[in-house]
């Protein structure tokens, strides 16, 4: 669905502003059909640049960005893409229904189909009763839900979600995660960015870690964390020993076999793994 092949992008130097910035330095990753990929990284890592390249807002300096088997990023392809931007801003004096009508009409949907789909989505997202209020009167969380509805109105095959949980309360986050799971089960391909690594773990098992314009890791979360699990050994005297290396583990097991009452593997979570990968990076 999405393929990045050795993509480079530099933001040019601007007068009286920051110097030229090499935002992406040969980035390669792929999202296959029906899969979910979490794009994670610190601020300025290149996540938003990658998304803007996918959406065709910018062109790469070098390399190829192939979206839905098309290299030229034709606007008509966006009929199959649902995009939730990081900042959900719309013309403020529109109502949510007018926004959805606009989004639907742009995808050549008939009025009746837009109305039916809007009702289903807005009820699911909990803003049906506010559908005729102006978007400027919405809270940040409600704007995010309206933006989500606009991204899904045309039932796209590929979803690109930039910080989908931003501005949402814990209940809202759970509802959105549930919705994303439903979309996954319908076979949609989903690429999303998030700083909330707990949520990333709840949504997907596959991540790409971006750092300073480079992909440091692209693969399963399980593989990323498995190699760095700790062993916790409970001793008869109540003491707990934490062991990182398997060689040391076998030594302790050999020397203190009679004093050990239990042992368990404590897996590294995505947060720890992410911090480790970033700290280990040598440019």
């Amino acid at each position: 669905m999405i393929q990045f092949i050795e993509v480079h992008k530099t933001y040019p130097k601007q007068i009286n502003r920051s110097p030229a910035k090499h935002a992406l330095k040969g980035v390669s990753f792929a999202l296959n059909q029906g899969k979910t990929l979490g794009l994670i990284g610190q601020n300025g890592a290149g996540k938003s640049t990658s998304i803007r390249l996918i959406m065709g807002y910018m062109r790469p300096d070098q390399g190829e960005v192939i979206v839905l088997q098309d290299e030229k990023n034709n606007p008509s392809l966006r009929q199959q893409i649902g995009y939730l931007p990081e900042t959900s801003t719309f013309p403020p004096n529109l109502t949510c229904m007018e926004l959805l009508y606009f989004a639907g009409r742009c995808c050549d949907m008939p009025r009746k189909a837009i109305a039916e789909r809007a009702e289903t989505l807005l009820k699911r997202l909990g803003i049906w009763h506010d559908r005729n209020r102006r978007l400027s009167e919405y809270s940040k969380g409600m704007q995010q839900r309206a933006s989500f509805a606009a991204a899904l109105i045309h039932d796209p095959q590929l979803l690109i979600l930039d910080e989908p949980m931003s501005g949402l309360d814990p209940i809202g986050r759970s509802e959105i995660i549930e919705l994303i799971h439903d979309l996954r089960s319908q076979g949609k391909s989903i690429l999303f960015c998030s700083h909330l690594l707990d949520d990333v773990e709840r949504i997907t098992g596959h991540v790409a870690i971006l750092h300073q314009g480079n992909v440091l890791y692209d693969g399963a979360i399980a593989n990323l964390c498995a190699d760095h699990s700790d062993w916790s050994i409970d001793m008869r005297n109540g003491e707990t020993i934490s062991v990182k290396h398997e060689e040391k583990l076998s030594l302790i097991l050999h020397q203190h076999a009679d004093q050990i009452v239990g042992m368990r593997q404590i897996g590294e979570n995505l947060q720890d793994a992410f911090v480790r990968v970033i700290r280990e990076y040598q440019p």
Partner: peptide
């Protein structure tokens, strides 16, 4: 400035349109 262009161009709208 307010990035609403991201939401607008997320539809199948060309820049010309």
């Amino acid at each position: 400035g307010h990035r609403s262009i991201d939401s607008i161009l997320a539809r199948p709208i060309s820049r010309t349109e």
